[in-house]
Design a protein around this nucleic acid. Structure first.
Lengths: 216, 216
DNA sequence: TCCTGATGTGACCGGGTGGTCATATTAGGA
DNA sequence: TCCTAATATGACCACCCGGTCACATCAGGA
């Protein structure tokens, strides 16, 4: 259910306005509660027009999520380009910083991602999550295999377990950073840049100690 | 907004039936989308009756969540009783097992908790989460302070950071266990009891290596 | 038995939703 | 300039929601 030709033919500026309004509405309310009436009122266009651009609410949402995956793909690509052979732990530290930058630059897109992650009534939820997970499994899974081969991390842990542990901590950190509601005690939102950097370093350090090969 | 006297006067069996139906409806649909119409149809009572028992939808929901916190309190109490002075890492391992048992015995209550955690339109969300967080901060925070004093874990990490790391991993594990949608690769739902135990042990082991004092 | 207060009932209300469609407006080639 | 096809419009529809309330039913003391 891609956007209709009518939407594609729109001037880029108007496309962007519509996308932005949709992203905000979905970010603030989730899929179900997001209101097309509110969106068109805010945009100053008729509801019928929206249906000239997209087949229905679901089509609009899928378009929005597609733009999100595009952004993630971009981010990962530049990530891979920057440090393909760096140490495992500096790589995941960089991934964490990349996540922070993403949230800073696209907070509403990140909120939509969280909505999809935790609301069950999102259309095609499984497929959407699958797409994103594929990125992250490929990325972290690849790093893990490489690091185990190089003796950087313990070899007695299956890669899915390593990925699980790394993702747990990184995701949770980003969730706390993005929304204070999920911050259970770090107070990330009000931390100074220096203290935030310290927190990042500490987290990576603990993962390093935890995942490095056991000393004899 | 506690239940009205009318509800309290109901035979215990009928109270239980209503509670169970409400828990299921909220677990399956979250607060907003949960339908009182569906509930009363399933219960075979009139909608007006529901409003004799509870002031409104919010009152019913708060009652349900209160029962959840009761269950959690119970669980924590028996946890503290069983092993007050055991090693930090065996304590958090036990906490993880307790979480697994809770999900096994009360899956719908756990789903409601996740809903509250990740849906923003839940009434009094902050207060509800605060209650639960208090339990966990007190429990894990206390364990951390004790463990740092005893030299069991690194003393250069602030306790909130330790709690954050432990909770990240434990919570994520339980989420994956409770709903395969959140399982990114461990396949917890289909693991044999033995493999699941192995996973638990590995996770605690990594946390142990990560949080133990650094060797000189 | 009858009366009264508590409890049970479901038709109904206002409001919001996603989606439709007959009609008005516009753009641009003939 | 005029005609036509593409686009814009918003009143309208059916549906579902939480919540209300006038009324039916019931329980049990007088």
């Amino acid at each position: 259910m891609p956007p209709k030709g009518t939407y594609i033919n729109l001037p880029a500026a108007k496309q962007a306005r519509i996308l932005t309004a949709a992203v905000r509405e979905f970010a603030e309310n989730g899929y179900r509660r997001a209101s097309l009436n509110t969106m068109v009122k805010e945009l100053g266009i008729a509801k019928g027009s929206l249906y000239q651009y997209f087949v229905n609410k679901e089509g609009l949402f899928l378009y929005v999520f597609d733009r999100f995956t595009d952004l993630v793909k971009e981010m990962l690509a530049s990530q891979v380009k920057n440090g393909p052979s760096a140490n495992f732990f500096t790589q995941i530290q960089e991934a964490l910083w990349a996540g922070i930058r993403f949230i800073d630059s696209q907070p509403d897109f990140y909120r939509i991602y969280l909505r999809v992650l935790f609301e069950e009534e999102v259309p095609q939820r499984r497929a959407l999550l699958g797409k994103v997970r594929l990125f992250s499994m490929e990325y972290f899974g690849g790093l893990c295999a490489q690091a185990q081969a190089g003796g950087i991390i313990r070899q007695d842990l299956p890669c899915p377990m390593v990925v699980f542990l790394v993702e747990s901590v990184l995701d949770r950190f980003l969730q706390a950073y993005a929304s204070p509601d999920h911050d259970t005690g770090l107070g990330l939102a009000t931390l100074s840049a220096g203290d935030r950097e310290l927190a990042v370093v500490q987290i990576i350090d603990v993962l390093k100690s935890g995942l490095s090969p056991l000393r004899a």
